[in-house]
């Protein structure tokens, strides 16, 4: 069975590199009671496939990865996995998906939000909202296109907010 995991990383965990994030998640899953399929070799790794990698420093509310297992992963598993997760990391949804499901084919892209502490210079495709002393910019980024880097536009915070799936 194939499962799609939705997770978020917030706070200081945004400073993890993509590689560090993957290893952290593998260890969370290894701490649960469920046995997953492993790769061969000395360092046996879990067979996971991840959505688009993010630059270090970006808050992620739309993390995705796929995992195959013979076990049934229900809400209890989700709770158990979160109970052995580090602070500021949370798996918030697990969907059972078709065996042929692939992230590259199914994810259209992501909505990003940039938080500015001063009025930003508007770029193409940006929607800007002013809330008192902060400006919130949102825009859509197609899957596997360039993700905004922290501070790239002078923004204070960079958030990958949600994933948009193809119909």
């Amino acid at each position: 069975m194939k499962y799609l995991f939705h997770y978020k990383r917030i706070g200081l965990l945004r400073y993890l590199s993509n590689h560090e994030m993957i290893r952290m998640i593998e260890r969370v899953l290894r701490r649960t009671d469920v046995r997953f399929k492993m790769t061969e070799g000395f360092h046996q790794r879990l067979k996971l496939s991840f959505g688009q990698a993010l630059p270090t420093g970006v808050i992620d509310r739309a993390g995705l990865f796929l995992l195959s297992t013979d076990e049934i992963l229900d809400h209890d598993f989700l709770k158990a996995a979160n109970s052995v997760s580090p602070p500021e990391f949370e798996i918030f949804k697990i969907d059972k998906v078709d065996e042929h499901f692939e992230l590259g084919k199914s994810v259209d892209g992501y909505f990003f939000k940039l938080i500015f502490l001063k009025e930003p210079e508007i770029q193409d495709g940006w929607k800007v909202e002013n809330k008192g002393k902060i400006w919130i910019v949102s825009f859509f980024n197609a899957f596997n296109s360039h993700s905004p880097k922290p501070g790239e536009f002078g923004q204070y915070l960079t958030i990958r907010n949600n994933a948009i799936f193809k119909d």
């Binding site: 200081l12 993890l16 922290p150």
Partner: peptide
């Protein structure tokens, strides 16, 4: 932390 090499080595609060 955006300005240093390997920021994860300074964030603490590990599992």
């Amino acid at each position: 932390l955006d300005k240093v090499e390997k920021p994860s080595r300074y964030i603490g609060n590990e599992y």
